[in-house]
Design a protein around this nucleic acid. Sequence first.
DNA 1: CCAAAAGTGTTGGGAATACACCCATGC
DNA 2: GCATGGGTGTATTCCCAACACTTTTGG
Lengths: 241, 241
Amino acid sequence: MNQDFIHTYVSVDCVVFGFDHDNRLNILLAQRHVDDVPVDRQRKLPGSLIFSNEDVDDAAHRVLHELTGIKKMVLKQFKCFADPFRASNQSDIKWMGTEYMHHIDRIITVAYLSLCKIDHKINSTKYETVDWYPVDQVPTLPFDHNKIINESLTEIRRWIETDFSIIFELLPKKFTIRQLYQLYSALSEKQIDIKNFHKKISSFNYIIPLEEIEQNVSHRAARYYRFDAKIYKKNNTKLIK
Amino acid sequence: MNQDFIHTYVSVDCVVFGFDHDNRLNILLAQRHVDDVPVDRQRKLPGSLIFSNEDVDDAAHRVLHELTGIKKMVLKQFKCFADPFRASNQSDIKWMGTEYMHHIDRIITVAYLSLCKIDHKINSTKYETVDWYPVDQVPTLPFDHNKIINESLTEIRRWIETDFSIIFELLPKKFTIRQLYQLYSALSEKQIDIKNFHKKISSFNYIIPLEEIEQNVSHRAARYYRFDAKIYKKNNTKLIK
DNA sequence: CCAAAAGTGTTGGGAATACACCCATGC
DNA sequence: GCATGGGTGTATTCCCAACACTTTTGG
C-alpha cells in the first residue's frame, strides 16, 4: 500500500444549541477526564469515534443519546474537519491514548449541529458532567473544537433560514411571541421591529394561540402560543424570508 | 485498541457541474480501468484517497486539478458519506485493490461540488477519458456515486441561492441574458417571466453590457454581457432572493 | 398616573408580476 | 408579412417597514 494515503480514525462531534432565559445561545459541553489538566481545561464538544459498522449519522445519534438521554434529537451534519494537525497537540494525543487506549496522532471528525430545549432534563449515560455555556463564554477547548463552534454559528443561521420550523426545537412548547422574537433576533442579526414581527407570526396558521397567558408580569400579560408541525408541513410556505 | 472503532481510508469525490448548449446541467465523469467490466460500467465520479498529511479541501483541489488541468476551481464541501456498505460491492472492492494495491472493504468519502465552464479545455493528467454527462443520462455508477450526485443537485441549488455570483462560473465570459435565464431556470425550478428577469438582471450594475451582439440569429440579436465580480463584492446586495 | 410591554390599525414605498408594445432579423 | 425573440414601459398587486394608537398590568 502506498504509505502516503491516510488510514485513520473518524469521529463525530456534536454542537448542541440551547436558548437560555437571558436570551443567549448556549452550547452543551461535556467533561473529559484528564488527571493532570485543570478542570476548566477539561471541557470538550461531545463526540466519539465511530464504530466499524456504523454510519456517521448513526454515530451522531448515539453521541447525542449518550449525552442527554434524549432519543431522536434533530441533527444536521454540517462539515468534515480534517486538518492534519487538528489533533497533534500533546495533551490531546495523551487524552486520546487514555480514552481509547491507543496512540492516535491524526483523526478526522464530522461535525453535527443539534438543538435542545434548555430546560430539558440532561441525563447523560456517558459523561459525569454536562453543562450549558453561553456561546461567548465558551472556554478554550481541545482539538479544533473552538473552530468547529465558530463555524457552527453561521451554520445554524443558515439552517433557520432554510427551515424556519426547527427554531421551535429551541423554545418551550408554550412560548410567547416575544420569546420567539428574541431567539430569532439572536440568530439572524438583522434587526426587525417586534410589532411587525408579532403581527406576521400571529398571522401564520401553524402558530396556535393558547388560552393561557403570562402570570405575575408588571405589564400586560402576553399570550402563549404553540407550534403545530402538521399544519406547517401542509402548506410548505416560505414563512420568513 | 477496541476493535469496534473504525480505522479506515478517507477519500474525496467531486461532482463537477457544467451547463451545455442545450440548456442541460452536465456532470464530469472519469473513466476507471477495470479489465473485465464493460466500458459503460467504468465511469465514476472523479476522486481520490486523501494523503496522510493532506486536508480534505486540499485533496479536492488536487483531484480537480488532476481531472481538468485547471487550477483554483471553485469548490464546496457538501457532505460526508459513510454508509458502512457503500463500498462493499465486489467489483468495487476489486477495483480498489487494483487502483490502490491494497484490500479495502470500507471507505468513507467527503463529497465536493465544483463548477466548470463546459467549453473549457479538459486536460486531465490522471484519467485517460473524462466526459460530460447530462444529469438525467448519468449511467449507473460504482459505490454510492449516483446517490452523491442526487444529493449534489439540491446542494447546488442551495449554493446558488446563498451566493448568486457562482452561477457565472457555469457561463461563458460573454453571455446573453437568455443564457443566464435558462441556466437559472434549470437550477431553480420556480418559473419566472423572462421579460421581468431581463429587466431585473440588466438593472444590476455588476452585469456589464458589451458592444458585441449575437450573430446569425433568425431574430433580433441579443446583447452580450459580462459579470464583474469586483462590483458585485462591493455592494453585497441580495440580488435574486 | 406612569412605565412597560401586548396587540391592532394605517399608511407609504419598493419590489415582484403581468402584460402591452415596439424593435430587429431571417425566411 | 410572419415568426421569434430582444428590449422597454406601465399598471397592479403585494409585502414590508414605520409608526400611531389602544390595552393591560404592577407599582
